[in-house]
Design a protein around this nucleic acid. Structure first.
Length: 319
DNA sequence: AAAACCTTCAACCGCCCGCTC
DNA sequence: GGAGCGGGCGGTTGAAGGTTT
């Protein structure tokens, strides 16, 4: 066999940016059937997209709980720290920042943070960096790597405990002073800004409806003539897609009957654009909760290492 | 004003892994 | 055990928008 066949028939597959109509079709389908079984999504929805494209669109843009826009100082520093610890394992890093997608983090790293760190290193006169750390770790034996990972996690946890001010006053200075050590002195960070205390960080979770609403807004701004068509066609699509769209009473309307009903029924209680949510990040939870570790690493071996590190840290009364 | 260049980020591609038969 | 398949991941691309010349 000449390699693996494509996941979908490339001839009839549409590529490029998703339209609001497609988004709504996808979201309403997932609302009804739940995410997963992506293979069947294009067939069942009539979307001319490949299953991967549907999954990506959902996980990166449409699923509820995605936070978009500028990264906070706190998030940025967490990414820098986690990248030093985990390398370019964006999905793993994203698991610590559940409201951000791996794609988002990867893009942010490639477009902002890499440059920023390079600048810092050149001004600080230190060689290497995230990538340098990786290349060096590649030369380590597995045993060495494992031991270092343990040490790194241990150090990170201790530093984060302090930095996140779980017990006492915030001391990010101390946290950042430890970062270079975590990455085998390959990353030197400048003296930190005043501590971006997590409690004052305003975070808004966006629901799928909000994500689509935003898309629609942008779409309308860009092509005002098209927007009216969209509203109409969207409603048609959704009515057709709905299997039980017979009851038009507002109270019993099927969520997929129209946009308003769909939004109200599925997302209104979730959040609003003005609602302020201050989530405990995964990493912060991790400091308290051993059980959270189960979601951190797929590799049971990594998991064991972290558990060992955790036990050590606990025995030292770090948390 | 317009061309050239730069930046951003949504989306695609190909590889890998795990599950099922 | 291994082939087939679906899902997940990281690297890369390219269009669009922004900035500079």
């Amino acid at each position: 066999m000449m390699g693996r066949p494509p996941c979908c028939d490339k001839v009839s597959v549409k590529k490029g940016p998703w339209t609001p109509e497609e988004d709504i079709i996808l979201v309403s389908y997932i609302q009804e059937h739940g995410p997963g079984n992506w293979r069947s999504v294009p067939t069942n929805t009539g979307l001319l997209r490949c299953s991967k494209s549907c999954r990506l669109r959902w996980t990166n843009y449409l699923r509820p709980g995605i936070k978009r826009g500028n990264f906070t100082d706190h998030e940025e520093k967490m990414i820098i720290h986690l990248q030093a610890l985990l390398g370019n394992r964006w999905a793993a890093i994203a698991s610590y920042l559940p409201q951000r997608t791996d794609n988002d983090i990867k893009n942010y790293w490639n477009t902002h943070l890499k440059k920023k760190l390079r600048k810092m290193q050149s001004s600080g006169g230190c060689e290497g960096g995230g990538g340098g750390g990786q290349s060096q770790s590649n030369t380590l034996s597995k045993g060495q790597w494992e031991r270092r990972l343990q040490t790194d996690i241990h150090t990170a946890k201790r530093a984060l405990c302090e930095a996140l001010s779980l017990e006492e006053k915030p001391n990010l200075e101390d946290y950042y002073s430890k970062l270079p050590q975590i990455n085998n002195n390959l990353m030197i960070l400048q003296a930190p800004q005043p501590a971006p205390t997590t409690t004052t960080t305003t975070t808004t979770y966006a629901s799928s409806a909000e994500n689509i609403a935003r898309l629609l807004e942008n779409w309308m701004k860009k092509s005002p003539t098209k927007s009216s068509e969209i509203t109409t066609t969207t409603q048609v699509c959704m009515s057709e897609g709905s299997q039980s769209a017979t009851n038009n009473s507002p109270d019993h309307q099927h969520p997929n009957n129209n946009l308003e009903g769909f939004f109200n029924n599925n997302y209104s209680s979730n959040s609003s654009a003005n609602e302020e949510v201050v989530p405990l990040t995964f990493l912060e939870k991790w400091l308290f909760d051993d059980a959270a570790l189960a979601n951190v690493h797929d590799d049971p071996h990594d998991h064991d290492l972290i558990s060992v590190s955790l036990e050590e840290a606990q025995s030292e009364g770090l948390f």
